[in-house]
């Protein structure tokens, strides 16, 4: 089967006042691919993700998901279509236990979003739900921490929990915003292994600061700089591109 684009943007732009945080970005990722976006601080990477997932409304341009224009679709409807993300700053619920963190996503999945029932008043921790949550936690290797308060986890464990929550939503495309940021070397290895193991199961798009971390992980790499997507290609091509090296070193990243 020839690869089909799963996600595409055309002229995607957003301005905060005068400031163009993302400027006319054309981007495309094919179904099943694993791609990365790199770029210095403030390049607009996270802002670009926020428009893909519906948290920000673009000032111009469009987002297409499986050929359908979803530019104005609310966040939660995009998730229902299979677009799932993690955040640059790990987003899990500190006031719940690790296992309870899994309940909202699992709940959504069990009911198949927006079915007849408006609310679900079922027992939160029924054996069935707990079993389901544990299975997902096991996939990222933190099932032993299930009863722990999430606030007590290390940052790396929280990151894994966040990924487990995302996986339980059964994504068609998973968007990871700097999944390695703030992790120790050991944790980076873990998470890289985890993401590596997901390749081929669904489409993956991840943001990273340092090219070196992901050059062996991704098949395609895009470079963002001052709101623009300045290059796209295979990792090795990008790494050896003069202009990009100049911008990158000029901007102080490695």
């Amino acid at each position: 089967m020839p690869s089909q684009p799963i996600l595409e943007t055309r002229d995607l732009s957003i301005a905060f006042g005068e400031y163009k945080a993302v400027d006319k970005v054309d981007f495309l990722i094919n179904t099943g691919d694993c791609a990365g976006i790199i770029g210095p601080n403030g390049a607009g990477k996270s802002t670009f993700f926020n428009m893909l997932t519906g948290m920000y409304t673009p000032t111009a341009g469009a987002v297409f998901y499986q050929g359908v224009n979803i530019t104005r679709l609310p966040v939660e409807k995009r998730v229902a279509l299979g677009m799932v993300r993690t955040f640059q700053l790990v987003s899990v619920f500190d006031s719940l236990t690790v296992l309870q963190n899994m309940i909202p996503p699992v709940d959504r999945f069990r009911r198949q979003y927006a079915n007849k029932r408006l609310f679900y008043f079922g027992e939160a921790e029924s054996p069935e739900v707990v079993e389901c949550c544990r299975t997902w936690l096991a996939k990222v290797g933190i099932e032993k921490r299930g009863r722990e308060m999430t606030a007590n986890l290390s940052y790396g464990e929280k990151r894994k929990l966040e990924i487990a929550m995302a996986l339980s939503l059964e994504p068609k495309i998973l968007l990871l915003d700097e999944p390695l940021a703030g992790l120790s070397d050991v944790e980076i290895k873990d998470v890289l292994g985890l993401i590596g193991g997901l390749r081929g199961k669904f489409t993956i798009l991840l943001i990273e600061h340092k090219i070196s971390q992901i050059q062996n992980l991704v098949r395609r790499l895009s470079v963002m700089h001052e709101g623009r997507m300045i290059a796209q290609g295979e990792p090795l091509e990008i790494i050896h591109d003069r202009e990009i090296r100049r911008i990158y070193w000029g901007a102080g990243a490695e």
């Binding site: 998730v79 993300r85 955040f87 619920f93 719940l96 309870q100 309940i103 008043f121 939160a124």
Partner: peptide
């Protein structure tokens, strides 16, 4: 209840709850 857990999560961070669909 499930709904209760979602409300607690929403108190902490509603954007993340939306991000979970």
């Amino acid at each position: 209840s499930m709904a209760g857990k979602i409300v607690i999560a929403g108190l902490e961070d509603k954007e993340t709850v939306r991000g979970l669909g």
